[in-house]
């Protein structure tokens, strides 16, 4: 079995949805998305361990954020336009209710919340944050806007008892 990459991502891989789903359209139910993600996570964790799985989810989320920004957003004349558009498209596509709590373009630090998100809202309390894919996704979005590598960390999560997920973004530490 060849280890050569078979599915290098491109937006075309998502296909022509109106053509392919003329009756059902572009939407599916959230539990289906979660079913697919959590089973994938389960298998990955068993094969490569939880730490490596987190790294994979983070990387995939970042790639998704970058592609999402390039396809649906930007470029923007001002941060306000970016923030408003991001908030609007999150709501329009049922990704979640995004709200900025802090934004400092000079230091490139951001604090934002996503309520009713796709990954964790309504999950049992686990005592730890689980939105690793979202961390990557938000990092990809903000990196595309700022042009700087960022590190995004979830500091509040439904799974730690919060009713909204809170993410802190700041410039990534230079890699050794």
């Amino acid at each position: 079995m060849s280890n050569e990459q078979k599915y290098r991502f491109s937006w075309d891989l998502l296909g022509n949805i109106p053509l392919g789903r003329p009756n059902l359209g572009p939407r599916t139910r959230l539990e289906v998305y979660r079913l697919m993600q959590f089973t994938l996570r389960d298998v990955l964790e068993r094969h490569v361990g939880a730490g490596e799985t987190d790294r994979i989810f983070l990387e995939a989320g970042r790639m998704a954020g970058v592609e999402f920004y390039r396809h649906f957003l930007g470029p923007f004349d001002s941060f306000s336009d970016f923030a408003n558009s991001l908030q609007a498209i999150f709501k329009e596509m049922d990704i979640g209710i995004l709200r900025f709590e802090q934004s400092d373009l000079d230091s490139c630090t951001f604090l934002l919340t996503v309520s009713e998100d796709m990954d964790c809202s309504g999950l049992p309390e686990l005592g730890y944050e689980i939105c690793t894919y979202d961390e990557g996704f938000i990092a990809g979005l903000l990196e595309e806007y700022t042009g700087l590598p960022l590190e995004v960390q979830e500091i509040d999560c439904w799974c730690t008892g919060s009713r909204t997920c809170r993410f802190r973004a700041r410039p990534a530490a230079p890699s050794a």
Binding site: R99, E101, T113, D156, T160, G161, S162, R163, R166, R168
Partner: peptide, 29 residues
């Protein structure tokens, strides 16, 4: 945002806090 609190019993309050924090950000904008 650094107030350490976990558990569902604080969840609603944290939502309120998040709303007020977002409102603060909006006011600054």
């Amino acid at each position: 945002a650094d107030l350490e609190v976990r558990g569902y019993s604080a969840g609603s309050l944290k939502s309120l806090q998040a709303s007020l924090r977002h409102l603060t950000w909006q006011t600054a904008m």
